[in-house]
């Protein structure tokens, strides 16, 4: 053992996270195959489009939480933050009558601002992330109701807004291909997030913080700054989700969003990201989000009772994490 020679590289972290992602992917394929056989009308292309569209919001929120979880934290505010940013875009576009790009940028920027406030609470005030973001979850929910006057805000004065998410712009390029923009936006966010996590210095710091914050600090890393940025990015991605959901409903619904954070965290966990931090992938989260919506869709198409669908989703979470534990033991 001491006498280690120059052998082939055996980076076990890469192997195990790759394995976990592969496991999640295999589970996804098995689910697709299962429902294709046993659920009539499931395998149609139009249904695949439905599933992808239904995944978009949870997938994007999952990406937001993935950042924070890898950094060693947790973000419970993503659901209501999504709603708050949707309300903000409504205020900008409908109440202030500003042009569409301002609304989009404003929602994302506001999400980033609110997220970085969570980051300040965690980094500077040393409040545990669970508590800080639990507080932010309520703050965002309350502000969404206050800003909207507890009424939905409609985007009728900005007719293009309602097209952002559900429209299939790809059809202009490839006639005949119907795929809502929200699906491309989700994959776009995921790819961008993947690049940031794996290639950028921010990503490297996020992994370092999640693995061993104190060692990073003693290496001269300005831990607080990177933490605040991490939560800020989570907030910005929530802004994207806010745009997706409000565009699809052509209205900002201020009461929506509670409970979405748990679905997002479930997607992250199923995708093999460790809640302990320091380990995880964005693509795993997207696969996790797909597993959840395939399950929901497939069981519905099969006519399984809603109640049982919830039970099965819970089982899948536990099984996925168990596989993760088994894989980690082996490495």
């Amino acid at each position: 053992m001491t006498d280690t020679t120059q052998e082939a590289p055996t980076n076990k972290v890469i192997t195990s996270s790759f394995l976990q992602k592969a496991v999640a992917f295999v589970v996804l394929i098995i689910l697709l195959a299962f429902f294709s056989i046993f659920a009539p009308n499931f395998a149609a292309w139009s249904n695949m489009v439905n599933i992808m569209q239904a995944t978009a919001v949870n997938g994007v929120l999952g990406v937001a939480v993935t950042f924070v979880i890898i950094s060693g934290g947790i973000d419970l505010s993503v659901g209501t933050m999504m709603t708050l940013t949707a309300v903000i875009s409504g205020l900008i576009l409908t109440n202030l009558g500003m042009p569409l790009p301002v609304g989009i940028a404003g929602a994302i920027a506001f999400g980033g601002f609110m997220g970085s406030l969570s980051g300040v609470a965690v980094a500077k005030l040393k409040i545990p992330p669970f508590i800080a973001t639990l507080g932010m979850m309520q703050i965002a929910r309350g502000l969404a109701l206050v800003f909207s006057g507890a009424k939905p805000i409609y985007f009728n004065s900005t007719p293009n807004y309602g097209l952002l998410s559900p429209e299939s712009s790809i059809s202009l390029l490839i006639p005949g291909l119907e795929m809502p923009n929200s699906v491309f936006i989700m994959f776009g966010v995921a790819i961008l997030a993947s690049i940031v996590l794996n290639r950028s210095i921010l990503g490297r710091y996020i992994f370092a913080l999640g693995s061993n914050e104190e060692a990073a600090r003693l290496s001269g890393v300005v831990v607080d700054k990177w933490k605040i940025i991490t939560y800020g990015i989570s907030g910005m991605i929530c802004g994207v989700a806010g745009l997706l959901v409000s565009s699809r409903l052509n209205s900002a619904q201020p009461a929506l969003g509670l409970g979405y954070e748990l679905d997002a965290i479930a997607a992250v966990v199923i995708g093999g990201t460790s809640l302990a931090g320091g380990r995880g992938t964005v693509m795993g989260t997207i696969i996790g989000a797909f597993i959840m919506s395939v399950l929901t869709n497939g069981l519905r198409v099969m006519g399984v009772q809603e109640e049982w669908k919830i039970v099965v989703t819970g089982l899948i979470i536990i099984v996925a994490v168990y596989i993760d534990i088994v894989l980690r033991k082996q490495s």
Partner: peptide, 23 residues
């Protein structure tokens, strides 16, 4: 606890304080 991010590679640990110079 304080010296290494043990879950990260030799490469990342050696270069961590210098990351900003390698972007």
């Amino acid at each position: 606890h304080f010296g290494l991010v043990t879950g990260m590679s030799v490469r990342d640990n050696i270069t961590m304080p210098s990351w900003e110079r390698f972007t």
